[in-house]
Simulated assay, not measured.
Amino acid sequence: MVEDNVFRRLHARLVLLAVDESGMSTVEYAIGTIAAAAFGAILYTVVTGDSITSALTNIITRALNTNV
Rank of each mutant, 00 (worst) to 15 (best):
G32C: 11
G32H: 15
G32W: 11
T33D: 09
T33K: 13
T33V: 08
T33I: 03
T33A: 09
I34L: 14
I34K: 06
I34D: 01
I34H: 06
A35H: 03
A35N: 12
A35F: 06
A36H: 08
A36T: 14
A36Q: 05
A36Y: 07
A36C: 05
A37W: 04
A37I: 11
A38I: 13
A38Y: 09
A38D: 00
F39H: 10
F39D: 06
F39I: 13
G40R: 04
G40A: 01
G40C: 05
G40L: 03
A41M: 07
A41S: 12
I42V: 15
I42S: 00
I42R: 02
I42Y: 10
I42E: 03
L43E: 00
L43S: 11
L43P: 00
L43N: 03
Y44L: 15
Y44H: 15
Y44G: 13
Y44K: 15
T45L: 13
T45K: 14
T45S: 11
T45V: 10
V46D: 02
V47K: 11
T48P: 02
T48K: 13
T48G: 04
T48E: 11
T48Q: 14
G49T: 06
G49C: 07
G49N: 11
G49M: 03
G49E: 01
D50I: 04
D50Y: 02
D50W: 02
D50Q: 01
S51P: 02
S51Q: 03
S51A: 11
S51W: 08
S51R: 10
I52K: 01
I52M: 05
I52Y: 04
I52W: 04
T53I: 13
T53K: 14
T53A: 07
T53Y: 05
S54R: 11
S54N: 08
S54F: 03
A55M: 10
A55K: 04
L56F: 08
T57M: 11
T57G: 09
T57R: 13
T57V: 14
I59A: 05
I59T: 12
I59Q: 07
I59R: 09
I59D: 06
I60N: 04
I60R: 15
T61M: 08
